[in-house]
């Protein structure tokens, strides 16, 4: 078995706040292979962003404690020195964020923002960096790149801004691109364009992508593997076919049921996941999802609130739930699937 390109093992991220310790990520493991896309889904607050900021070492060490292992192409990152992380960021691993308007500097032209990343990591001259910026703007499909390179972010539309963000992220040909809800702030039609762009670029350059979203539709169309997160933990993992086709975890069922569907009759109500996300300061004992779970009684008395269920097995389709495989299959087919 070869080692995966990115491997995260037992990642734990705690924040020390005035209200107490926030357990934002708690024992999370996953892998990403070169040239593939891992979709990470979960309600907001489930620790998706925190996980990915941890990969780049972007949490303030004064307020956070990170344990576990993150290995990228053989390099351990959790304990890596700052200088190593700075060389990595924007170069080997790049990140794009949800809101391209606030995530780009309003004070610098897009050409400068793209170019400075290139210069930082390649030592290119100003002229070369500018040429590269134009080339990148072209690559992400911005018309009149030659003139628009001197424009400022506010002069672009939302979708074009996200393209600029992608151009900036890809300027050093990263091996891993982390896209944190890249389409959430955009119109539906623009969303599809951005996702297509990411897929095209992946095919051309073989970039591994982590695509964070709370939209299972996006995952279905763009990812190879899926990781479902709840309260800082992975509750289900597998290929898109496995997780969306035969989901096993009650939380995944809930997410699927709460998804708006194009072909459903209008009078079928959307069923959001019942209840509210748990506090990450006092995480419910056992399975953190049990207070919101309709099936906990089936697992046996006090199973769900006792010990925490582990995600198993380590590879392939896995889920963290005490229901038996037969129960999961029956419930999904009999009670969930017909409503999807």
């Amino acid at each position: 078995m070869t080692t995966p390109f990115l491997s995260v093992r037992d990642l734990t991220v705690d924040f020390h706040t005035e209200d107490g310790v926030v357990h934002a990520v708690d024992g999370l493991s996953f892998d990403v292979e070169k040239g593939t896309t891992l979709g990470i889904v979960g309600e907001s607050g489930s620790g998706k962003s925190v996980t990915n900021l941890a990969i780049l070492g972007l949490h303030n060490p004064a307020h956070s404690r990170i344990t576990g292992e993150i290995t990228l192409d053989g390099d351990e990152l959790v304990r890596a020195p700052k200088s190593q992380l700075e060389r990595l960021r924007g170069n080997k691993v790049a990140m794009i964020f949800q809101d391209p308007l606030t995530s780009l500097s309003p004070y610098h032209s897009v050409g400068r923002q793209i170019g400075e990343t290139f210069r930082k990591h390649t030592g290119a001259s100003r002229k070369e960096a500018r040429d590269r910026a134009v080339e990148m703007l072209r690559r992400v499909g911005i018309p009149h790149a030659q003139t628009r390179v001197d424009d400022y972010p506010h002069q672009f539309s939302g979708g074009m801004r996200q393209r600029v963000m992608i151009a900036m992220a890809l300027v050093c040909d990263p091996d891993l691109l982390i896209a944190d809800e890249p389409t959430t702030a955009l119109d539906v039609t623009v969303q599809a364009q951005i996702i297509d762009l990411l897929k095209d670029l992946q095919q051309q350059f073989g970039t591994a992508i982590i695509l964070i979203t709370h939209d299972l539709g996006v995952v279905a169309g763009a990812a190879h593997e899926v990781l479902v997160m709840y309260a800082g933990r992975a509750v289900e993992r597998g290929t898109v076919r496995e997780v969306l086709g035969s989901p096993r975890h009650p939380y995944t069922w809930g997410l699927l049921s709460s998804m708006p569907r194009l072909h459903a009759p209008v009078d079928v109500p959307l069923v959001p996941v019942r209840g509210t996300p748990p506090s990450l300061i006092n995480v419910p004992p056992g399975c953190p999802f049990h207070p919101r779970c309709d099936f906990q009684a089936l697992a046996g008395p006090d199973m769900c609130r006792g010990e925490r269920p582990e995600l198993s097995p380590h590879r392939g389709h896995g889920d963290a739930c005490y229901l038996t495989p037969a129960q999961k299959q029956d419930i999904f087919i009999e009670q969930i699937k017909e409503h999807l």
């Binding site: 990595l88 960021r89 606030t102 780009l104 500097s105 930082k120 963000m165 900036m168």
Partner: peptide
């Protein structure tokens, strides 16, 4: 601000 985080995320 977000844009400062972006600057850090690109290795500045």
């Amino acid at each position: 601000e977000d844009y400062v985080r972006t600057a850090r995320a690109k290795g500045m």
